Structures are given as C-alpha cells and as structure tokens.
Simulated scan of single mutants.
Amino acid sequence: MAREINNRPRTKSYGAELMNPHSPTPLAYSVADACRALSLGKTRIYQLINEGKLQSRKVGKRRLIPAESLRRLIAGEV
C-alpha cells in the first residue's frame, strides 16, 4: 500500500525529476511540491523567495515556482 501524504497516495518521487535530465519535468512547482522536491519546509521556501534566491509567479491564487529556478538553487548558481 502506498504511503499517504496530505491524504493523497504517494505515487512518485518529487526530487527525482530534478536530478534526472531524461525524465519529463513540470514547468513549475507549487510551494508544496517544491517543499517535497527540496526537502525544505514551507517557511524556508518563502524565505528563499523573499531573499530573491528563488523565483515565483502568482497564477490566480496559486504561487508557482519555475522548475529552472529550483535547478539554479540546487546548482548553487544563486
């Protein structure tokens, strides 16, 4: 049985797509998905956004983080 996170079955590894250049990746991540991908808390994600180290866009009420911004942060380019 799949482990559940936030009452949803866990069906994929969120950090894996950032590390595997051959897997299809989303264009942007929600804050919750970015937390899982980076193993960071929501507060730290918002701190990185406020510090300018992580880009984000508002789409309606949602805040999305471009995948490229996550890659740059992990690569230490920020």
Score class of each variant (00 low, 15 high):
25 T>H: 13
45 I>L: 06
43 T>R: 15
43 T>E: 13
31 V>E: 03
40 L>V: 13
14 Y>M: 12
56 S>H: 09
69 S>V: 03
10 R>E: 11
66 P>C: 08
16 A>E: 10
13 S>L: 10
7 N>T: 11
41 G>I: 04
51 E>T: 07
33 D>W: 03
55 Q>I: 12
76 G>H: 03
16 A>C: 03
13 S>D: 15
1 M>R: 15
53 K>V: 06
46 Y>G: 00
75 A>L: 15
32 A>E: 15
67 A>H: 15
60 G>D: 06
38 L>Y: 05
77 E>H: 04
36 R>I: 02
33 D>A: 14
37 A>F: 05
62 R>E: 14
2 A>W: 09
24 P>L: 11
62 R>D: 15
50 N>V: 07
13 S>H: 07
57 R>A: 12
60 G>I: 11
5 I>E: 13
30 S>N: 12
50 N>K: 13
73 L>S: 00
48 L>V: 10
18 L>A: 02
17 E>Y: 07
24 P>G: 04
33 D>Y: 08
33 D>I: 03
11 T>Q: 05
21 P>N: 01
56 S>M: 10
26 P>E: 12
42 K>H: 11
39 S>D: 13
38 L>W: 15
9 P>Q: 06
37 A>I: 05
20 N>G: 00
75 A>C: 07
34 A>N: 07
32 A>K: 13
10 R>P: 00
22 H>L: 06
51 E>V: 03
45 I>K: 03
7 N>R: 14
12 K>H: 00
14 Y>G: 05
72 R>Q: 14
71 R>D: 01
27 L>V: 07
15 G>R: 14
43 T>H: 11
47 Q>A: 08
31 V>G: 02
71 R>F: 10
55 Q>P: 06
50 N>S: 15
5 I>N: 01
35 C>T: 05
21 P>V: 04
27 L>K: 03
10 R>N: 09
50 N>M: 06
68 E>H: 10
7 N>S: 08
41 G>P: 01
47 Q>V: 03
33 D>G: 06
52 G>Q: 08
71 R>P: 01
27 L>C: 01
23 S>T: 14
16 A>W: 05
66 P>W: 11
57 R>S: 02
40 L>D: 05
23 S>N: 08
46 Y>H: 11
36 R>H: 03
23 S>E: 12
44 R>P: 02
49 I>M: 01
66 P>Y: 04
78 V>Y: 12
34 A>E: 04
61 K>I: 06
62 R>W: 11
68 E>S: 12
35 C>S: 10
67 A>D: 10
58 K>T: 05
48 L>I: 06
56 S>L: 03
56 S>W: 00
74 I>T: 04
67 A>I: 09
65 I>N: 09
43 T>Q: 12
40 L>A: 12
76 G>L: 06
58 K>Y: 12
16 A>V: 07
36 R>D: 00
7 N>K: 15
47 Q>M: 08
49 I>Q: 08
59 V>G: 00
20 N>S: 01
46 Y>L: 15
26 P>H: 09
25 T>A: 14
46 Y>A: 00
1 M>K: 10
22 H>K: 01
62 R>C: 08
34 A>L: 05
